[in-house]
Design a protein around this nucleic acid. Sequence first.
DNA 1: ACTCGATCTTTCCGTTGACAAGATAGCACC
DNA 2: GGTGCTATCTTGTCAACGGAAAGATCGAGT
Lengths: 172, 172
Amino acid sequence: MSYHHGDLRRAMIDAAAAAVAERGPAALSLRELARLAGVSHAAPAHHFGDKAGVLTAVAAEGFTLLADALATAGGDLLAAGLAYVRFAAAHPGHFAVMFDPGLVHGDDPVLAAARDRAGDALAGLTSDAVAARAAWSVAHGFASLWLSGALTGTDAAAAAEPVLRRAVAGGL
Amino acid sequence: MSYHHGDLRRAMIDAAAAAVAERGPAALSLRELARLAGVSHAAPAHHFGDKAGVLTAVAAEGFTLLADALATAGGDLLAAGLAYVRFAAAHPGHFAVMFDPGLVHGDDPVLAAARDRAGDALAGLTSDAVAARAAWSVAHGFASLWLSGALTGTDAAAAAEPVLRRAVAGGL
DNA sequence: ACTCGATCTTTCCGTTGACAAGATAGCACC
DNA sequence: GGTGCTATCTTGTCAACGGAAAGATCGAGT
């Protein structure tokens, strides 16, 4: 066991995302993460400053992952929506933190850049602003409700598909 | 100043909802609420058990308010969606807690009853399950994004109206 | 007047986030 | 190969918090 961890930053982000995914942001303890990583309780502060700093890093990584997922999904809103839901289901810890202003340092430049990148990926899907907002709302709403346990089903994307399809087609 | 508060339960729920609305659930402190109410820091425990108990009461009240709002809104999905968004904007503290399983006692009977009542109000809008899920998703997603600050605008309902209308009509 | 249950206080404990000050390691530079 | 420099991590400390225990106070019903 050397004095230095090697990649504490990476380990903390991963552990934080996993812990948030499992027990929510409220139950997150920096000291516990430090214990898991085998470092002292004050080590994380050097990399992240404070608790919000850790979650800010998680959120920034989340927006980057989301932007990548949207970019890979293709051009139409249905595919993008499914990618959005798939991302949320695959990275619940990241997702839970990304849209909670009270948990992160909203003005962090790294976070802002990642958020903008995801925003651009979303805005690039269509030139119709209202349609973009509507699509974002359906996908975000379904993802949120799914993660909160309000919706039943085994596979998030499979459950989302008919819902998103209907929203795209209309007829509500 | 008498020994008894009078209606500590009510005061705690109101203060908790206000505090959550202002600074998020993470920054909530039972001791601070107790100070505001002018009672000792252990007084709330008698009424709510623990911290999750306070938020459970807030969530239950939220679902009741939401069920009322949906019942008053009328039958069509657009009106219900607008009522949903209006509720979230008017009671951000309640809304923030209602769909966060990690913050409340999910199996609390009062909460479950209130949640069921809101669920019934939602399900009663249409017999089409897919349409119901889609409408719920749009309204919930827009409300969540709005409260997180991701959407710009001055009035939530005014901003939501064209978006919800488009989702109902389709053409994304 | 008396009892009894509900409400609230006081006191205590373990945990947490944050801060300050110092130790250690690796690395450039000479 | 030594010397300073900086990033990284540790130790020690503090106030605040959530929760539990035990007792005080009130008020409603008899």
